[in-house]
Computed example of a mutant assay.
Amino acid sequence: MTVARFLVVLDADSTLLQDEVIELIADEAGRRAEVQAATEAAMRGEIDFATSLRSRVAALKGVPLEAFERVRARVRPTVGVTELTAAVHARGGVVGVVSGGFHEVLDHIAPGLGVDRWRANRLGVVDGALSGLVEGEIVDAEAKASSLREWADELGVLVSRTIAIGDGANDLRMMDAAGLGIAFNAKPAVRAAANLVIGPQDLSAVIPLLP
């Protein structure tokens, strides 16, 4: 079993990454405005995340798999992310990402950013195109909190030595479960509930907070 000194878990979209990946995919379907409005409502906590995700993914039906190469090329890592992951590793920590986004993007991007483990949703595929459905259980707020606790247990890390970083309402349970919950690039409700708020959109600002 790998043993770590501490664990840092980040959300992906608008935290690890500058973009909401589902909106980049929606561009390929010509439905970005519709999906963007639903994403913002979900992040503010106005709509149940799982219900919102299913409706947004339905709007992606028919997008061909080859579009993901274009989507991944457009994804922008957040400023300071590699500095943060390097600092975590230098101090004996582990970096995890748990996302309401998609493995189809994270599997390609996360390793190069220094992420050690990640969990996300999977998109259904039929005949080389998106089916408009989510495969398996949806990674929602409770799944995010559960992932943080499970990873901490696997790594032999006390929950008090975990840090959770997120921006949206579906990150609140994860942030509450962690020893330190940090609101980053966050919606007002998330800033109000967090232990700490980071204003500049630069993840290296988290480094002084590492154990």
Rank of each mutant, 00 (worst) to 15 (best):
A143S: 10
T39D: 10
A192Y: 07
L113Q: 01
S14C: 10
N121F: 06
A59F: 07
E69K: 13
A67G: 07
L60W: 04
A87L: 11
A189S: 01
F68L: 15
A183S: 01
V81M: 15
V8Q: 07
S14R: 06
A189V: 00
I182W: 06
R54F: 05
V79S: 12
V190D: 07
G199W: 05
G100C: 09
L209T: 00
L130Q: 08
V81P: 10
R91Q: 15
P111M: 01
E34H: 12
A178Q: 11
L203P: 06
N170S: 02
L130P: 12
T82L: 12
A164K: 12
E20G: 05
N121I: 04
R191D: 04
D27Q: 12
K144S: 04
A50M: 00
L203E: 02
R117D: 02
T162K: 02
L130D: 04
K187T: 03
V197Q: 08
A110W: 06
R54Y: 04
G80R: 10
V159G: 09
L113G: 01
L16S: 14
G80E: 05
V157N: 08
V3P: 09
E135I: 14
R122Q: 13
E154P: 13
G100D: 06
A164C: 13
P188L: 04
L106R: 07
A12T: 04
D153L: 14
G80L: 10
A183Q: 05
L60C: 13
L106N: 03
G136V: 13
S146D: 13
V125C: 13
E40C: 03
A120K: 09
A145L: 11
D19N: 15
F6Y: 12
A169Q: 05
L180V: 12
L7K: 01
V125P: 13
A120T: 05
H103E: 10
I207F: 08
V9C: 13
R5A: 15
R119N: 03
G181Y: 09
G93E: 06
L24V: 04
E20A: 02
A4S: 15
G156Y: 09
E34F: 10
A33N: 06
K187A: 03
M175V: 12
R191P: 07
E46V: 02
S204R: 15
V115W: 06
V125Y: 07
R32K: 14
A186P: 02
S14T: 00
P111I: 00
A58F: 10
S204P: 09
V35G: 10
L172S: 00
L7G: 01
R70I: 02
V63E: 00
V159L: 15
F102N: 06
A87E: 14
S99T: 02
E34D: 13
I182A: 05
V139Q: 06
R119T: 09
G101F: 09
M174Y: 03
P77T: 11
K187I: 01
F49Q: 00
A29M: 08
E46A: 13
G112P: 03
L148Y: 08
V159S: 14
